[in-house]
Write a protein that binds this DNA or RNA. Structure first.
Lengths: 238, 238
DNA sequence: GCAAAAGTGTTGGTATTACACCCATGA
DNA sequence: TCATGGGTGTAATACCAACACTTTTGC
């Protein structure tokens, strides 16, 4: 198994058996009513023209968390990333041809009110209709979507998809896009309010062009990830 | 940053900047009414005499999953491991002195009716009162306990701690030990039955020496991990 | 019979969904 | 005034914990 891309120089040994480590992130955002992922199109082999997740090699003096944040800063502003979390390690020996690279995969979230400047090779793609992806990046992205969908149910992770202030209707549209099915605004507001994750700002905005009652603006009480529904069952005694 | 343990030979370059990868597992079992972890005592530096998690270097042709199963087979029989799952990546540059080793951590579960033969340097220790541990292994173990506690609430993961057949009282003791608080046998049976995770075998066993009604034997309907409480809220429409 | 342990019935409380209904605005 | 979307009230259901009660054994 020789490395066909960067042949070893005269004084270098073949290090293809040495495990390299990369970090990758499935960065998603709700845009135009559906969940989109940030992908860049590869120019060079392997997998030319296919779409890949942002990421890169782990540096010697960084954790996987700091590494992925550093590398994403080249694609999107770090301040725009409202949440980053580890997903899993992907380590099939053949996941990258002719090399041995283990990947630590992350989920990254961007609120819907920001529209980062993207490099020319980079674009948003709907997660439910991905283009041809490189390596195992589709699997990583789908794992990220599953994680997001689960956490929408028992945490306040919605804050990471939402702007600082929003109407319940806007929040419902975000949840619907991420979950893939229609969510009731009525019940969404009640669930999040009962759990103390949501609060009214007291402000309202003007009604839309077709009329209707002017909606109130809400915010998440915390913009850090919190588990709001610990212990569905078998909870410890009070 | 030189490697003080295996100094580079004459023709070798200093590779201490190259990221090595290891796999580690927090292997736990309920023994004598409390959750115990499998640890081995280090003889050599770094951290001599401290207790460490089983694991080792990732091989060139294996995934992290197959690697940890291979390495655990040296400590405990793989057939005795009823469940193995990834926990997280631990990657602080200083987590192992003088080396750069990224670890993929796993949680491993062993049912309470097996008592593996252990090497001389290996022993079970209560997770709530660990001895002095090496590196970041205590953090890994506590993360594993948290994962187990969470999954006891919304999956059938109890199967991995229990023997093939058991009474509800025995199962209650397993859950109590793993969760760290008393669980009601009455409600435990009802929750797991309602979810279809538990079923009666039809058999009963003799009562204990102090009398009492002879308990019935139950089994888990599946011995693969299944999420039994998907979507606590915001569930998709029927 | 009595103590002990297992298992069932029942009740009160809470969480959640669905749906009816009221509210406030633009046209 | 009416259509429209926002928001509240409420009923039906399901789930859960706690506890009373019954069952079946050993002594």
């Amino acid at each position: 198994m020789s490395n066909t891309n960067t042949p070893p120089g005269p004084r270098e040994r073949d290090t293809s058996h040495i495990t390299g480590h990369e970090v990758l992130a499935g960065v998603v955002q709700v845009r135009q009513g559906s969940l989109k992922a940030l992908l860049w199109q590869r120019a060079r082999p392997p997998h030319p023209n296919r779409w890949a997740l942002p990421g890169g090699r782990l540096g010697p003096d960084e954790t996987v968390e700091s590494s992925i944040r550093r590398q994403l800063a080249e694609k999107v502003d770090v301040r725009e990333l409202t949440h980053v979390e580890q997903l899993a390690v992907f380590s099939s020996p053949g996941r990258v041809p002719d090399k041995r690279i283990v990947a630590t995969a992350f989920l990254g979230l961007i609120p819907c009110d920001t529209d980062p400047e993207l490099p020319d090779d980079t674009a948003w793609h709907p997660v439910e209709a991905l283009p041809e992806t490189a390596f195992d990046h589709e699997e990583i992205l789908l794992a990220g979507r599953e994680r997001l969908r689960s956490k929408l149910s028992y945490t306040n992770i919605g804050f990471a998809l939402a702007p600082p202030k929003f109407t319940v209707s806007e929040l419902r549209d975000l949840y619907s896009a991420a979950l893939g099915y229609r969510v009731s605004a009525t019940n969404l507001q009640r669930v999040l309010s009962r759990r103390g994750a949501l609060e009214a700002t007291g402000e309202t905005v003007a009604a839309g062009p077709s009329g209707g009652r002017p909606p109130a603006l809400f915010r998440f009480t915390s913009r850090d990830l919190q588990i709001t529904d610990r212990f569905a069952v078998l909870r410890p005694p009070a």
